[in-house]
Design a protein around this nucleic acid. Structure first.
Length: 469
RNA sequence: CGGGGCGUAGCGCAGCUUGGUUAGCGCGCCUGCUUUGGGAGCAGGAGGUCCCGGGUUCGAAUCCCGGCGCCCCGACCA
């Protein structure tokens, strides 16, 4: 009984598969204005889990949440030359409001370095005010020419951290801390997603930054996706916004600032890194619903049994959801697979009669019967195992599609279906142009041992090149 | 902004070349019954400014002119 697949197979048309998953898993819809996105309840529940896990880590790193306005005076953007140059093409500008033309247009924030810089200048007087560690959860607008749900939308949700420090070393140290202890830790421990942690080459750096760090993940089609970034901004914004402090020596000096962000793009990354031909596969620690309890039929006895099981799971700390059994069994099961709920408990008359439950793993589809009394512990163990297996599987996939090469030609070839590691020294301007002609870019620079460099001038760096989203 | 394609029911499409009944089909939706351990079946039903404007014609989804919108591929980005 081979059913025709519900989704376009990944191997047939990956972008189409992605669209199918987003629609059929009820993650999001296109908004009425081109490039905008409606995040549906299931997609938003996943985003809320991301927020929660990241927010805990951000607070553990010492930053506090605040909120700054959506509207920014256009003149602010112009104060930092590279910044305005980088963002001008994608700005949404409000020229009319309240029935009249505005004296000074306001831009809808594409990012908040400028407004926050203005207030940092006001709040910071002394070295005792440093470091100032702020974060905000917000929406931002960057007008996109080719939007794709979650990956590139004209409006998206994110967290943006903005910090001010007394020295370049402090700024660098903190940005690195965030990058490793918030972003990479979240990616590994919650998203089960191995990322390459590196720095951006000058050509890919954030507009106005002196150094940009990135976490690059590989998707199931071999393309790279930037999952989070952290920037050292030097004194560029401090000078533009006069963010000055008086040191213990009585001398005034400019702060060193940093910023760091991760967005709803992570949802797209999760879909493309873990999904398979049957739909989404949500890693267990992230999943809004870790277990769905499916009543095989909707008679009172089965429903009662299923309800008890769902309650027991919830009470023991497993995020569970009860499927009340309307509609055919097969259809419901397929729908939960598309949504990627890690574990399914099937409850029917046979299970109830034998005092057992049937557990089914979303990843491999394996079914096991366990005694009702052992259900919770087995479910917990399976969820734990699945996290590790998701991570290992993604890592093995990435390794299988990564080549280490010694020439630009080989790098181009390797980047056709994955990552190529090539000596950074080989990539002069002409070489980068050759890559770019083939839609291949330098995703990041890493040390030979894979660790994070401090800057791109370090000797013997390795460039990771790939096609990307 | 350059090249290619498309606008017909919530979604996906046929019909257009060669103008002519009441504009169809699949999925979805509603009602009822039978079902429910891997995408259920039968019966009945609702749902349309055929993208917009103008023109030709006795008559336009169909032909002509002009708009608008969307999608895909090339220069930027979380």
């Amino acid at each position: 009984m081979a059913q025709p697949s519900v989704l376009t197979p990944q191997g047939e048309d990956f972008p189409r598969w992605y669209q199918d998953v987003v629609q059929k898993a009820e993650m999001a819809d296109n908004g009425p204005v081109r490039g905008t996105m409606v995040i549906r309840p299931y997609g938003y529940a996943i985003w809320e889990r991301i927020q929660r896990e990241m927010d805990d880590r951000i607070k553990a790193a010492g930053a506090q949440n605040a909120y700054f306005p959506l509207f920014i005076p256009e003149s602010y953007l112009h104060r930092e030359a590279e910044h305005v140059e980088g963002f001008s093409p994608e700005l949404a500008v409000v020229t009319h409001a309240g029935g009249a033309e505005l004296a000074e247009p306001v831009v809808v924030r594409p990012t908040s370095e400028t407004v926050i810089g203005e207030f940092m200048a006001k709040w910071i007087q002394s070295h005792r005010d440093l470091p100032l560690l702020l974060n905000q959860w917000a929406n931002v607008v960057r007008w996109e020419l080719r939007p794709r749900l979650f990956l590139r939308s004209s409006e998206f949700l994110w967290q943006e951290g903005h910090t001010a420090h007394a020295s370049a070393e402090d700024a660098s140290r903190y940005a690195t801390l965030i990058h490793l202890e918030v972003y990479n830790d979240f990616l590994e421990q919650v998203l089960a997603l191995p990322a390459i942690v590196g720095i951006k080459p000058p050509s890919e750096r954030f507009a106005g930054a002196v150094n940009t760090m990135t976490c690059e993940g590989m998707m199931r089609d071999g393309k790279a996706l930037q999952l989070a970034t952290s920037h050292e901004l030097g004194q560029n914004f401090a000078k533009a916004f006069n963010i000055v402090f008086q040191g213990d020596d009585g001398e005034s000096q400019y702060c060193h600032t940093a910023s760091w962000g991760a967005s709803t793009r992570l949802v797209g990354g999760l879909i493309m890194a873990h999904g398979d031909d049957r739909g989404l596969r949500v890693p267990p620690r992230l999943a809004p619903w870790q277990v769905v309890v499916v009543a095989v039929r909707d008679d009172d006895e089965v429903l009662h049994g299923a309800r008890e099981i769902a309650r027991e799971l919830l009470e023991s700390g497993v995020r569970s959801h009860l499927d009340t059994g309307r509609g055919s069994f097969g259809r419901r099961v397929t729908d939960w697979e598309i949504k990627g709920v890690p574990l399914r408990v099937e409850v029917g008359p046979r299970d109830l009669a034998s005092g057992q439950v049937t557990l089914v793993r979303r990843d491999g589809g394996e079914k096991i019967s366990v005694a009702r009394a052992e259900m919770v512990s087995v479910a917990r163990r399976l969820l734990d195992e699945m996290h590790d297996e998701f991570y290992q599987e993604a890592l093995a996939f990435r390794e299988s599609r990564t080549v280490t090469v010694a020439s630009v030609d080989e790098a181009l070839e390797g980047a056709q279906n994955g990552f190529a590691r090539v000596p950074w020294d080989l990539l002069d301007e002409a070489a980068e142009a050759r890559l770019k002609a083939d839609a291949v870019t330098v995703r990041c620079l890493v040390r030979a041992d894979g660790t994070l460099p401090l800057h791109e001038k370090e000797p013997d760096l390795v460039a990771v090149v790939a096609k990307s989203y």
